[in-house]
Amino acid sequence: MVKVAGFFAMSVGAFIFWQTMDKIHVWNALRQDEKQERFEKEMEIKRVREELLRQAKDKDALA
């Protein structure tokens, strides 16, 4: 009986551990995706800002 109870307890413990690790993995992946999206937005903003500054500089040079 003790062996069966021990096996059952270890099986439940392994299942809980597996589920927890899966949730942590999903959370970490979502966090990395958010970081990547934020980085891409910042790079796009910098690119647009530099383009606008370049256009303004060209207009001032022509005037």
Rank of each mutant, 00 (worst) to 15 (best):
E50M: 13
V12P: 01
A63P: 02
Q55W: 05
W27Y: 12
D33H: 07
R38Y: 06
T20F: 14
E50T: 13
I45L: 10
E44F: 06
Q32H: 12
L62E: 14
V4L: 13
K23W: 01
V2A: 09
M10Q: 12
K46H: 12
A63I: 14
K35N: 02
V4H: 00
M21Y: 03
A61G: 02
F15A: 11
A63K: 11
V2F: 03
K41M: 13
E42A: 00
G13H: 02
E44C: 04
A9L: 07
D22M: 01
E37K: 05
A61F: 06
H25R: 10
A56H: 04
L52R: 12
A9Y: 02
E42I: 02
A63M: 10
W18H: 10
M21L: 08
D60V: 11
Q36S: 15
D22F: 03
A29F: 01
F17W: 14
Q32C: 10
A63E: 07
K3F: 05
R47P: 00
W27R: 04
A29D: 00
M43V: 11
I16V: 13
I24S: 11
D58S: 06
D58E: 09
L52H: 10
G6T: 04
Q36V: 10
I24C: 09
A56W: 01
M1S: 11
F17I: 15
F17L: 15
H25S: 13
R38E: 08
I16F: 06
F8Q: 14
D60S: 15
V48M: 10
V12L: 08
L53H: 12
I16L: 12
M43T: 09
G6Q: 04
A5E: 03
S11Q: 06
A56T: 05
A29S: 07
E37Q: 07
N28G: 03
R54A: 15
D58F: 02
H25A: 11
E34S: 02
K23T: 07
F7M: 12
K23D: 03
K57Q: 02
D22L: 09
F7G: 08
Q32W: 09
I16W: 01
V2R: 09
E50N: 15
F39H: 15
Q19G: 08
L52Y: 05
D22N: 09
E42F: 02
M43N: 07
K46C: 04
M43D: 01
F17S: 15
R31T: 03
V2D: 01
